[in-house]
């Protein structure tokens, strides 16, 4: 029998997805389109943050939204009511969006007529952290009622995100949420992350979030 030969690979397990994600990024840069991947648990406020962001930025940027949802199109209906281009991806099972799905969604959008695309990823703090979608920035939302221990339970998501919106801060008085501990735990996993405390209900903190996003879009394009 032939001897076994070992071949060094040192290649990322998800390299296929990553290569396609990189192609998507380059294609979008060539067309001066900035893409944001928004990730959070169900009910954290992804759709609400998208709507509030659209309302604040739609006079400056032409915005499109890719909605990832396992079965329904409730979110897409809410977002398209804001008058922006919306593509609904019904994943029908998968717990995350990956680069091939985003590529397909982009194929149905007129990229020449857009400056900003926001991906609403599937509601889940685990799987979306693993898959590069081709977005320029990854942003996660954590809502106060979910608890400050989520950073300990789902560390990968916090370690890969460029920014974190701590939503529903109007609940802080009712919740047992320690902001100092939370920040310390987040920063030890990811010292470069930007944290925005906000409430989509009262509007608090949303201008600071939009200011950051505006600067990131301008820096990239």
């Amino acid at each position: 029998m032939d001897p076994i030969k070992f071949i060094n690979i040192k290649e990322n397990i998800l390299s296929d997805n990553q290569n396609l994600a990189q192609e998507i990024r380059e294609e979008l840069h060539a067309k001066k389109v900035f893409m944001l991947n928004l990730m959070a648990s169900p009910g954290a406020g992804k759709t609400s943050l998208i709507i509030e962001t659209i309302r604040r930025l739609k006079t400056e940027f032409r915005i499109g939204v890719i909605e990832g949802d396992i079965e329904s199109q409730v979110d897409a209906t809410r977002v398209s009511a804001e008058g922006v281009t919306t593509v609904q991806l019904r994943t029908g099972g998968p717990c995350h969006l990956d680069a091939p799905m985003i590529k397909a969604a982009l194929g149905s959008m007129n990229l020449e007529s857009l400056d900003l695309i926001i991906i609403e990823n599937v509601g889940n703090l685990v799987c979306p952290a693993e898959f590069d979608t081709g977005a320029d920035r990854k942003v996660m939302i954590l809502s106060v009622p979910e608890g400050d221990d989520k950073v300990i339970k789902y560390p990968l998501m916090f370690s890969v995100s460029d920014a974190l919106v701590l939503n529903k801060i109007d609940y802080l008085a009712l919740a047992d949420f320690n902001r100092e501990n939370f920040r310390e735990h987040v920063y030890r996993l990811n010292p470069h992350i930007r944290i925005f405390e906000a409430s989509c209900k009262t509007g608090e903190g949303l201008d600071a979030w939009c200011e950051w996003l505006r600067a990131e879009i301008k820096e990239t394009n």
């Binding site: 029998m1 060094n8 690979i9 990322n12 397990i13």
Partner: peptide, 9 residues
């Protein structure tokens, strides 16, 4: 999260 090596014949 990577593939270090493969053993082949």
């Amino acid at each position: 999260f990577f593939i270090e090596s493969i053993g082949v014949i």
